[in-house]
Design a protein around this nucleic acid. Sequence first.
DNA 1: CTCAGATATACTGTATACAGTTTAGGAAAT
DNA 2: ATTTCCTAAACTGTATACAGTATATCTGAG
Lengths: 233, 233
Amino acid sequence: MISLDTSTPQQGLQPVRRFTLAEEVADQVRRAIISGQIAEGSAISEPKLAAQLAVSRVPVREALVELEHDGVVEFDHRGRCQVRQFSADDVREIVTLRQTLEVMSARLAAENLTAETAAALQENVHAFEQETDVTNISRLDVAFHDLIMQTAGHGRLLTCWRTVRTQFELLLAKAHRWQKAHDIPVTDHALRGHRPILNAILDRDAEKAGQAMRQHIADWGELNYKLGMGKDV
Amino acid sequence: MISLDTSTPQQGLQPVRRFTLAEEVADQVRRAIISGQIAEGSAISEPKLAAQLAVSRVPVREALVELEHDGVVEFDHRGRCQVRQFSADDVREIVTLRQTLEVMSARLAAENLTAETAAALQENVHAFEQETDVTNISRLDVAFHDLIMQTAGHGRLLTCWRTVRTQFELLLAKAHRWQKAHDIPVTDHALRGHRPILNAILDRDAEKAGQAMRQHIADWGELNYKLGMGKDV
DNA sequence: CTCAGATATACTGTATACAGTTTAGGAAAT
DNA sequence: ATTTCCTAAACTGTATACAGTATATCTGAG
């Protein structure tokens, strides 16, 4: 039985989430960009996109601003929007910024670990190591880093993470497409390095967790450089 | 004489910057929040703000979203906007995130230093050490950290910096108001620590620059904790 | 065939309009 | 006097409208 007395709010009940069209549009466009369905460098016209999605320009506009913060589209000085193209320098930026942000998150996660987050991380790494489907591998990979960020419990760090998260996903997807196109197996790369990070966090060893994370992302960076990421798929 | 041949573009000419009402609104509201003119926790109504500024709701809406990214306002689950209140935890977050981001920027700045940026930094520190007016001190303080970020030459790091920059300014202004209200002189605090950072950067010693920055921000954090920041002015 | 100029189309920034929902206020009842 | 219920005002999310500017198309001259 649920108390209807609002002065003593019920625990575990969250205010209902309000979904806006802008979020929906942002999600769809984001997915389309990550999947390569919308090519790098493509111009995005508000009216056309609005027509395609059967909404007005307003939510489209808001969605594009969000995607700009995600770093996957950009506006020129005239207000024209286009899908961002990633140069080799961009890839380096993403790698180095991830290192900085995620080393911090790994340290904090080691310090703030709880039973629930520990279980979630273990579960994730286990599933990650078993998974063979490329799409799911990506999903679990991103989820692992998200989980650590969550565990870190630092709202503003999370905000920063959101500014690179989508770009990280994009590079992952691009790499997978590249590997598929060149018949290079995806599973034998360095990304199985989640385990050392997990162990360090479970040991609550902040320093070791940070180092493991730094190494992991450096390895990922090397992979991207080797694949010639930023030279477009 | 300026060549009109667009195929061989003239150096040093930038596309004209387009100022939108949204930016103008964001600037004004940001300033009002930093100065305390709009109190922490105040509700912000789009129609009222639009009427006050004599613009429509559209640019106001866009401005508020920008300010949300700046971390100075927040939207509740109903879409209502209010000026954010800073708890002691928020202050800790701002301090620790600044450390992470700015240690990185100091290192990069040491590596990427040019003659111009060196001159600009020297000039800034010199002016900072001479200045006595509180408002100008704040301006120069923020400008110093901006300059280092600029010098670092890392676009995505700069994006992250922007998510805390305004909050940094806000804490500075709050501290100054607090000190003024309690007749505590502002000039004798630890903030004169820009010099060691500058020297390390000029020496192109990335490690030392990072350490100096870490210490500087830690000192600033201590000052804030001591003043009881997050307990509102 | 190439290029310049003119006209038409498209796009962004901003304003206004509207629908559904929330907040506030006041009347009625206890 | 307090509480409940109802009505009115206000606010957000979304759609539509409009003005000014940029892009694209087409025509005609060389």
